[in-house]
Design a protein around this nucleic acid. Structure first.
Lengths: 258, 258
DNA sequence: CGGGTTCTTGACTAGTTTCAAGCAAAGTGG
DNA sequence: CCACTTTGCTTGAAACTAGTCAAGAACCCG
C-alpha cells in the first residue's frame, strides 16, 4: 500500500465567497434536504469564506487540531488513517455536500487525515461556531448529529466489506457504492462516471494490495460488467454487479447537510 | 465465521428503576465527565425504566426501527453487521457507559445489530425524547454528537486494523484495546480482566477465521505476552504487546455519556 | 519529447482459510 | 448424579486467496 507522510497543510487558498448560500448548488438536489429561509440565513452568517485547493492537498492531519471545518462544494477527497510504518487505510471517500472536520469541532482533534483527490472548492466555517449552532438552532444541531451518524454508517459498511467480503466482492462493492453516491449528486451520465481515483486508492480503501486490486478490476472488465479507462468508469451490467457486491440498494430520503 | 439469524427481540425484560441517576455508578469514574445538578435532573426525567437482558439477547436488529434506546449500566455487547449469506462483521464492542441505538433515534432505523454478550443492565430511554434534549439542552445535545463522533472513531480504528494490520497485529490490538477500555471503567484488576468474549467473536471483529484467530492467540500465549484461559485475560508484557499492536495509547480527557 | 506516475501481467511466496478431528468445559434431562 | 448434548477451544494438513517482486506498457504533465 501507499507509504508516505502527508505534507504540511498550507492554508493560503482562502478566497472570497463566490457561491452565496442562497445560490447553493445543492438546493436543487432531491437527495438533499431543503432549508427554511431562516436556517439558510443562519448558515449563511457562518460561512467565513471559500477555499480552493489543488488535488493532493492535505486538508486535515490525524491527531492535529485545525481551526476550520468545511463543506465540500465540489471535488473528491479521501479520509484515511495510517499506521506508524506508513500502511494506509482509507476509511471513506468524501464527495460534494459532505462535511469535513467534524471530529475537529466535536472532539478536540482529527482522528483521521483528509486529502483532496481533485481540486476542490470548500465552504469554510470556523470550528468554534459549531457551539453557536447548538445554542441557537436545535434543528441544525440535530442535523450535525445526523451527519456524524451517517459517517459512522458509511465507515461501518466499509468495515463489513473489508472484513468479510472477498476481493472480488469488495471491488464490486466500492465501485458500485461510489457510483451510487455520485449518482445521487448528479455526477453521473447514463451509466458513466468520471472517477478521480487511482487503483492505489481503491486498494487502500479495500485493504488489498494494488496488484490484486488491479487483477480483480481486470476480471470485472473482462466479464463485461464494467469498464474503467482513462478516469471514466462505466457500468454495463448493474444487476450482476449488485449481486456480486451484495449491494444493499436502500435509498434513504433526503439527507441533511450544512 | 458465525452464520445465524438473530431471533426476535422480546421486550419483556423491563424493570422498575433500581439505580436512580443520582446514584449512577459512573459518576465516580475519572474517565467519564461529571454532570451538573441541572443536567442530572434533566436526564433523570428521561430515564423510563431499567432493563435486564440475558446473554445472547438481541437488542437491535439491522434495518429495523426500535422504540427504545439504552445506556449500558453493566455487561458487554457487540454491534455487528451481516451479509445476506450470514457472514458477520463485528463493528465494535459495547461496554458499560456506552450508548446503544443512536442511529435508531437520529436516522430512522438501526444500521447494525446489537447483541448482549453477558447479561446486561440497561437504562431505558424513549427514542423520541432525543429531540426534547436538542430543544432544551444544547450541552447534552453536543454530548450526543460527541458520542456519535467517538463511535465513528472506534469503528475507524477497527477498519484500520482489519484493512492494514496482519493477523498477529490485529489480535494484539483488539485484546489490548478491549483491556484498556475495560481498565478505564474499573473492570480490570492488576493486569487481569474477565473477558466475556469467545474466539469466534474475536475472529468476527478482526475479519479472520476462527482457526487462524485461535492459532494467533496461542502464539501470543506461547511467547508469554498474554494468557487467556477460562474467560480470564491477562497481560504479561504490556510493552511488547503494544509494540506488536502499534497501539496508540492516547488517553483522552473525561468523556461524556448520557 | 522526456520523466514520472499509474496500470498491467506473470511468477513466486506467504498468510489465511477450509476441512477434519479430538478434547475440554458447561449445560440438560432423566 | 451421571450419561448425553452442545458449545467452545486446539491442532495438523491441504487448498487457495492475496501479497511481493519484477518489468514493461500506457498515460499524463510540463
Amino acid at each position: 500500500m501507499l507509504r508516505k507522510v502527508p505534507g504540511p497543510a498550507k492554508n493560503n487558498y482562502l478566497q472570497p465567497i463566490q457561491t452565496p448560500c442562497e445560490r447553493c448548488p445543492f438546493h436543487k438536489l432531491p437527495s438533499l434536504r431543503k432549508f427554511t429561509a431562516d436556517e439558510l440565513a443562519f448558515v449563511k452568517g457562518f460561512k467565513r469564506a471559500e477555499m480552493r485547493v489543488p488535488a493532493g492537498h492535505t486538508l486535515f492531519i490525524e491527531n492535529e487540531e485545525h481551526r476550520h471545518i468545511y463543506t465540500v462544494l465540489s471535488g473528491w477527497a479521501i479520509r484515511y488513517k495510517m499506521l506508524e510504518d506508513g500502511r494506509r487505510q482509507i476509511l471513506n471517500f468524501a464527495l460534494p455536500s459532505d462535511f469535513l472536520g467534524m471530529q475537529n469541532a466535536i472532539l478536540k482533534s482529527m482522528k483521521q487525515s483528509v486529502e483532496a483527490l481533485t481540486s476542490m472548492t470548500l465552504c469554510v466555517f470556523d470550528r468554534n461556531q459549531i457551539w453557536e449552532i447548538y445554542k441557537a438552532y436545535p434543528e441544525l444541531s440535530f442535523d450535525i448529529t445526523w451527519i456524524a451518524s451517517r459517517d459512522e454508517c458509511l465507515v461501518g459498511e466499509n468495515l463489513l466489506s473489508v472484513g468479510r467480503r472477498t476481493g472480488l466482492e469488495r471491488v464490486a462493492y466500492v465501485l458500485l457504492h461510489l457510483f451510487m453516491r455520485a449518482k445521487g449528486l448528479g455526477l453521473t451520465k447514463d451509466n458513466q462516471l468520471q472517477l478521480p481515483v487511482t487503483q492505489q486508492q481503491v486498494a487502500d480503501a479495500l485493504g488489498l494490495s494494488i496488484v490484486h486490486t488491479n487483477k480483480t478490476i481486470r476480471k470485472l472488465s473482462k466479464h463485461k460488467l464494467i469498464s474503467w479507462r482513462q478516469g471514466i468508469f462505466e457500468i454495463f451490467d448493474l444487476q450482476r454487479l449488485s449481486e456480486i457486491a451484495m449491494y444493499n440498494h436502500e435509498e434513504p430520503g433526503p439527507r441533511p447537510f450544512i
